[in-house]
């Protein structure tokens, strides 16, 4: 009768749980990013490897330090800092000076997350906060792109990578425009198939639309992520850019180009879907997706930057509380206005 001789555990109902915990979700997302990471390593070699590893390590360190500074238990093990680091690294140009990567990762974690109380309380996507601040801080370095599948990529690092801290990196590798800047500034279109497969220049993780989509499909299949955000963003981009293109195909880029170039895929699948910064309800999420999609096309087409995804998502994040506020679910047994009918 030993089973009855000890104190019973008392807990509050419900006594069963669905199972998948937060750390598990982070892990699944990282898993889904693997194909894109692998592609990045293949096409950019050591440059991408060092960028990604540094970003992850610096993010984890920053998270640990941030927790220690305010006397909280370290939250490194929930995996969110690692994911932020990985996502941040994937948005960087491979070959970015490592000291800049470290600065950016600290900005992402401290400014994007720890300042607001850590995981769950960050109003903006931390990786994108890091990326956007870096873009404004080191505009030249952040837009210096190395060529993809350079022959010596596995044997030597781009000279920019190892620039001394606080100094300007000296560019010696073959650099060139991304498909988006080529279009924006020289009106050169890139072959859609190249974009889709990823044999172009760009950020470490953004080049292969196909592999990113694959990761997204995995996450949707595993129910880690809803399909609504990526689908509405991509659909909106396709519709808006498609309309412009049909109207004047010489001035405006084709929808294929928009869909498969730059950071749109990575942003739509992995950044905008960050649960913390996106609205909760289905309607809210759809509006959020449409807003981001429209902003992407608007910024890419008419504003100064060739790429607008990160700004669009940050603005979407800023609007998410309002979408949540305006679109509260109608409570059972009440009318829209909240009164019993």
């Amino acid at each position: 009768m030993s089973g009855l001789d000890k104190t019973l555990l008392v807990s509050s109902s419900p006594h069963v749980r669905k199972g998948r915990a937060v750390d598990r979700i982070m892990f699944e997302v990282m898993l889904a990013l693997l194909p894109a990471v692998a592609w990045s390593l293949w096409s950019f070699g050591l440059g991408a490897l060092f960028t990604l590893l540094t970003a992850i390590a610096a993010s984890v360190l920053a998270e640990h330090l941030a927790c220690r500074m305010v006397g909280r238990p370290s939250t490194v093990r929930d995996g969110s800092a690692m994911l932020t680091g990985l996502l941040f690294g994937l948005t960087l140009p491979p070959g970015l000076a490592l000291w800049m990567v470290v600065v950016g990762a600290f900005i992402a974690i401290f400014l994007g997350k720890a300042l607001f109380g850590g995981l769950g309380y960050n109003p903006f996507n931390p990786a994108l906060v890091g990326r956007a601040v870096m873009q404004a801080t080191f505009p030249v370095a952040m837009t210096t792109w190395v060529a993809s599948t350079a022959p010596e990529r596995f044997t030597r690092l781009p000279s920019t990578t190892l620039a001394w801290p606080l100094t300007q990196p000296v560019v010696d590798v073959v650099s060139g425009p991304t498909p988006l800047s080529a279009w924006k500034f020289s009106h050169q279109a890139t072959d859609a198939a190249d974009l889709f497969m990823g044999s172009t220049m760009g950020s470490a993780g953004e080049t292969s639309a196909l592999l990113i989509l694959l990761g997204g499909v995995y996450l949707v299949g595993r129910k880690v992520m809803g399909w609504r955000i990526p689908v509405t963003i991509l659909a909106t981009v396709a519709v808006v850019s498609g309309a412009l293109w049909l109207w004047d195909p010489t001035t405006y880029a084709s929808p294929w180009f928009h869909l498969f170039s730059g950071g749109l895929m990575l942003g739509a699948v992995f950044m905008a879907t960050d649960m913390v910064g996106s609205p909760m309800t289905h309607t809210g999420v759809v509006l959020y997706g449409i807003l981001i999609g429209v902003l992407v096309v608007v910024i890419r087409t008419w504003a100064g930057m060739p790429e607008g995804v990160m700004y669009a998502i940050l603005l979407g994040n800023a609007l998410a509380p309002h979408l949540d506020r305006l679109i509260q679910p109608r409570v059972y047994g009440t009318t829209r206005k909240g009164k019993a009918p």
Binding site: L111, G112, L115, F116, P123, F124, V129, A132, V133, A136, L295, V298, I299, W302, A303, G304, M305, G308, M310, Y311, A312, L314, L315, A318
Partner: peptide, 23 residues
């Protein structure tokens, strides 16, 4: 105030995306 200013800074960075609109 510190948190509000940080948010303002991030918003300011986000608004940089609009730079060049209308040029």
């Amino acid at each position: 105030t510190a948190a509000s200013l940080a948010v303002a800074g991030i918003l300011s960075v986000a608004f940089m995306g609009f730079a060049g609109l209308g040029s």
